[in-house]
Design a protein around this nucleic acid. Structure first.
Lengths: 192, 192
DNA sequence: CGCGTGATTGAAACCCTTCAAGTTTAGTGG
DNA sequence: CCACTAAACTTGAAGGGTTTCAATCACGCG
């Protein structure tokens, strides 16, 4: 849970005493490879903080096609915020790609942190804002660039992830077929 | 400013007295057709609420290509939230497409509303969350569907906007060329 | 009226997909 | 630890959707 504590410290000031109290409340869970943390249709009760491992969130469209929404490696937050905040049915699946250690940010923990430090709430807004910016970049990328450029941008954003995640999932994230990604990689390997 | 007051009432309870106080603080401004509200590189000091008219936000990518991020008609909020919240240089332009009446949600107003009613802050989070969902839908749409389907979805989301906005801007929003949109419309007109 | 901007249409080129086959890799059980 | 199998990845050829470039048409505004 050390990564999560550090993540909190980056947002708000905490005394040693407060940290101990938080640690008592933390729920840490390990998920096996391919295990589901959340399924489409469920109501999400937690936000997930990745201590170790890799998660992905994905959805299935009207044509039955799978689309990766997000990868989450160490120190990333993964959730279906809409389901979590509004208690609606989740539109996403969340799954462990490797064996992963995850801190469950329950509503109880959230309430506790909010009462502990009034700055927590506003730091949450900034995190959400950051997420918005990230999504906006992705939209602009989808509108502007070819598959090759999008892939090069992707490996800059998620360095070293190619070794940990199947290629077809990366293709899904980029919005291209696995065959296309294979050709893109071949092209990059030969021409740069 | 009536639309904005109603918008606030939908979020938080307000007494007549409070409404009068808010009205005193409201800054309403009219922008001419094509006038800029915010330019890329500026630091945004306001969020814009559209009382009447149409705004658009757009950005220009590395290749010099323009991309429409969002249209805002009556009762929509338009802003570069990242610039507004973090006081960074704006990545977007915001421009009036028609002559438009706009409520400027200044930081002063925001602070005032937050102190007036503690529920205001959490309703802001829900609005932001709604924005995230909207962006997610757009990403899924870009990944999943052909230009025709995306256009049909677009006119459902923004009914009657086609008469108020040049077609090439809609093409830009959809991520296709004006020529392609023209062909898509021709196709829909003949085949449905 | 004429100019400029926006919309349409056609033909060729391009990027990516689809389908199909073959190769490699990785996980599983003996 | 090896052998087997399924999944993942690669490669090729054909096809589809979209872009690009170029020409033409329509319209509003000075």
């Amino acid at each position: 849970m050390q990564n999560y504590i550090q993540h909190l410290k980056n947002q708000i000031d905490l005394t040693e005493e407060q940290i101990e109290k938080i640690k008592e409340k933390l729920v840490v869970k390990t998920f096996q490879r391919n295990e589901m943390l959340l399924s489409m249709g469920d109501v999400s009760s937690d936000v997930y903080f990745v201590e170790k491992g890799v998660l992905r969130s994905y959805t299935i469209d009207e044509n039955g096609k799978e689309h990766v929404i997000q990868f989450g490696t160490e120190n990333w937050l993964v959730s279906d915020r809409n389901s979590y905040l509004c208690k609606k049915e989740a539109k996403f699946y969340i799954q462990a790609i490797e064996e992963s250690e995850v801190v469950l940010i329950t509503e109880e923990l959230n309430t506790f942190l909010q009462e502990l430090n009034p700055n927590y709430a506003s730091s949450q807004v900034l995190l959400l804002q950051n997420h918005v910016r990230h999504m906006q970049d992705r939209i602009t990328s989808l509108l502007s660039y070819t598959a090759k450029k999008r892939y090069l941008d992707f490996i800059k954003l998620y360095p070293n992830i190619t070794a940990r995640v199947p290629q077809w999932m990366i293709a899904s994230y980029l919005g291209i077929t696995p065959e296309s990604l294979s050709r893109v990689r071949k092209d990059i390997a030969s021409n740069g």
